[in-house]
């Protein structure tokens, strides 16, 4: 009996090591350890042994079975690993081939607008979009530009007839906002504006962002503060801001604001026309007449307003040479941003 077991163990060990696949190994396992395998058969023969011998032989058989089980496990693992490795190797593909699943992009103007809006919203500014077709009142009269005022020459307006026109400035939204909101208020109004002007540097459609703050004790220094952080945020920490006196009917005092040229850092280049400065926006302290028009007491409240071209900001940030490229929508252009 003992000999038989040793022989079976020896044979099985040899067959395990000879098995070259998981299925061959499984066949060996069935042959020896299966329900009616050779080892099980041997166990059946136990009945014939003397009661004293049975526990002894049982121990021997179980030891042999345990040994074989661990050999099966070891071999099984090795076979599984090599077979998996072979399968993985066979499954290898050419990863350099591209499957076109492009992801689109926002238009550069949209992307810049989003950044601008996020910047001002983070400082507590409300965002309002006004109508693009406006009345003369909101676009001019209420902004202290009466009919036939020379300031109207500053903007070539598209007229629709009667009292309606295409707004030439987002400042129109200022008035609408102040009609419905009373100080303290902070708002921006990004949007589309129109001018009857079409040449290399002008587009009849472009985008502006108007900003307005009205509260107690608002000063020119506050305006400078906001615009400096705006300029640094968009054009880099090194950016310098310059205020120059100017004129807008709806602000008094009025300023024109330049930022140091991000391209040449003030040395003078083609972008800044050699001046080292790039004009980016107009601003000022809200004209007292405008506040009065909106039923806000100018002796109690003051405010500042600013407005700039989103197109211009986008062009500066991305180095886009012509405003027209923004509206052509050539996909090769749109893919760049």
């Amino acid at each position: 009996m003992e000999e038989k077991i040793a022989k079976l163990t020896e044979n099985c060990t040899a067959e395990i090591s000879a098995a070259d696949s998981e299925s061959a190994l499984y066949a060996v396992r069935v042959k020896y350890l299966g329900k009616s395998g050779l080892i099980s058969e041997l166990m059946k023969g136990m009945r014939e042994l003397s009661p004293e011998m049975r526990p002894l032989m049982g121990k021997i058989v179980n030891e042999a079975r345990g040994k074989l089980e661990s050999l099966f496990a070891e071999k099984g693992k090795a076979l599984h690993e090599s077979e998996l490795a072979a399968r993985l190797a066979a499954e290898k593909i050419d990863i350099t081939i591209d499957k076109a699943h492009p992801v689109g992009k926002l238009h550069p103007l949209s992307a810049v607008r989003k950044r601008l809006v996020d910047f001002f919203v983070s400082m507590g500014f409300d965002v309002m979009e006004g109508p693009e077709v406006e009345t003369d009142y909101y676009n001019f009269e209420a902004l202290n530009v009466p009919k036939d005022h020379p300031a109207r020459d500053m903007q070539d307006t598209f007229f629709i007839g009667g009292n309606t026109l295409l707004r030439s400035q987002t400042s129109a939204a200022q008035i609408r906002y102040m009609e419905n909101h009373k100080p303290p208020l902070k708002m921006i109004s990004p949007g589309r504006v129109f001018r009857n002007d079409d040449d290399a540097t002008h587009s009849p459609v472009f985008h502006q962002l108007e900003g307005l703050v009205v509260d107690k004790g608002i000063t020119m220094c506050d305006l400078k503060g906001i615009l400096e952080s705006f300029a640094k945020h968009f054009f880099g920490q090194e950016t310098k801001v310059r205020f120059r006196p100017s004129y807008f009917p709806f602000t008094e005092p009025s300023v024109e604001v330049d930022v140091s040229c991000a391209i040449c850092h003030g040395k003078g280049c083609r972008i800044c026309k050699g001046t080292g400065w790039i004009e980016i926006l107009g601003a000022g302290i809200v004209n007292r007449k405008v506040l009065r028009t909106c039923d806000i007491d100018p002796d109690e409240y003051t405010g500042f307003a600013f407005g700039f071209g989103i197109d211009r900001i986008a062009n500066i940030i991305h180095g886009i040479p012509h405003i027209k490229l923004l509206y052509e929508n050539d996909i090769r252009f749109l893919k760049q941003f």
Partner: peptide, 27 residues
């Protein structure tokens, strides 16, 4: 005020950050 600041010079005023303004929520 505009005449004064024009000649006083904007370079000579310091930035402040809405130092008297109230909190607004915005969005």
């Amino acid at each position: 005020s505009e005449e004064v600041i024009r000649y006083y010079g904007y370079d000579n005023i310091k930035s402040t950050f809405l130092k008297t303004a109230s909190c607004t929520e915005g969005g």
